[in-house]
Amino acid sequence: MTVLCLLLAWQAVCSAGLVPPFMLPSPVSVAQALVTDWPLLASHAATSLAEAGLGLGAGVALGFVVALAMDRFELLYRAFYPIVVLTQTIPTVAIAPLLVLWFGYGMLPKVVLIVVTTFFPITVGLLEGLRSVDPDEIDLMRAMGASRWQIMRHAKLPAALPQLFGGLKISAAYAIVGAVIAEWLGGFSGLGVYMTRVRKAYSFDKMFAVIFLISALSLVLMWVVDALRRAVMPWERAGESNRR
Rank of each mutant, 00 (worst) to 15 (best):
E128W: 02
G145F: 09
P162C: 11
L18M: 15
L62R: 01
L161C: 10
T123P: 02
Q88L: 07
G53C: 12
W223T: 14
V65A: 15
D226K: 09
R199M: 12
G192I: 02
P109W: 03
L157A: 01
R230A: 12
A50C: 10
A45S: 14
M152A: 11
D71S: 10
A96Y: 02
A159Y: 04
Y202N: 05
V100Y: 03
G125E: 03
A69I: 08
D205T: 04
I170C: 05
F120Q: 02
K169I: 06
E128V: 10
V28L: 15
G55L: 02
L76M: 13
V177A: 12
G53H: 08
L130Y: 10
I83L: 15
V224S: 09
L24F: 13
A42C: 13
V232K: 01
M107N: 05
L157I: 14
V85T: 09
S241E: 15
L99M: 13
K156T: 12
A79G: 10
W10A: 07
V66T: 12
R199D: 11
V3N: 01
W102C: 06
G187I: 08
M144W: 06
L56V: 06
M195D: 04
A9C: 12
V13I: 15
K200W: 05
L213S: 06
V30L: 01
T36D: 05
V28N: 04
G17E: 04
A96F: 04
C14A: 15
L7V: 15
A172R: 10
A50L: 15
V193M: 07
V220G: 09
L62G: 01
Y77E: 14
M1L: 12
E183I: 12
P91Q: 02
Q163L: 11
L221S: 08
T2W: 03
F119H: 04
V210M: 00
L18I: 14
I138W: 07
A79K: 06
S189V: 01
A58R: 00
I138N: 03
S147P: 00
P121S: 10
G125K: 00
Q88D: 06
V111A: 05
M23E: 13
E51D: 08
W10C: 05
A61T: 10
L56Y: 06
L49G: 07
V180D: 04
G125W: 03
Q32D: 09
L191H: 02
R230H: 11
S132K: 05
V84M: 11
G239K: 10
L168Y: 03
P21A: 14
T36P: 00
V124C: 08
F204L: 15
Q88I: 07
A227L: 13
G192T: 02
L98G: 04
V13C: 10
V198A: 09
G239R: 13
W10G: 07
T89H: 09
V85A: 13
V13W: 04
A155R: 08
M233V: 15
M207N: 06
L40G: 02
L157Q: 03
